[in-house]
Amino acid sequence: MPEDKNRFSPKIAAFCCFHSAYLAADSAGAMRKSYSDGVYIIRVPCAGKVEGLHILQAFEKGADGVLILACPQESCHYISGNIRAKKRVDYILRFLEEIGIEPERLKLFNLASNQAPRFVQVVNEMAERIKDLGPSPIKAGVIGR
């Protein structure tokens, strides 16, 4: 059962490509555009560096949601990293479904380094979505936490 929506503050692991989303997050900072403080940015050189295993590990360690933020389509700094990331996310989504984790908890978005407003929108919408869903079922399953 979702707890009181206002009391629950979701933790989201955001794997951010250092050539796009990470820089977008920085400029969101420069513009003082606020977003949910449950979003933790993990710098990666390319979204293609994020393994399916890392995504599962994030959930296992208690993430309520995981974001993979990659370069825009057709414009990956490393040519195909964003495509690889997308395919892995699709593969892991099937896993999540089998485990019983709602697919809305894992999302991939493409965004460019100059899209600070989109970054903020994407993470805030994610945070809202996760608030509606409540804490991750994996955490909830642990007695005593």
Partner: peptide, 8 residues
């Protein structure tokens, strides 16, 4: 070029 795709 250090993308890390191979490692993944």
């Amino acid at each position: 070029q250090g993308c890390g795709i191979c490692a993944a």
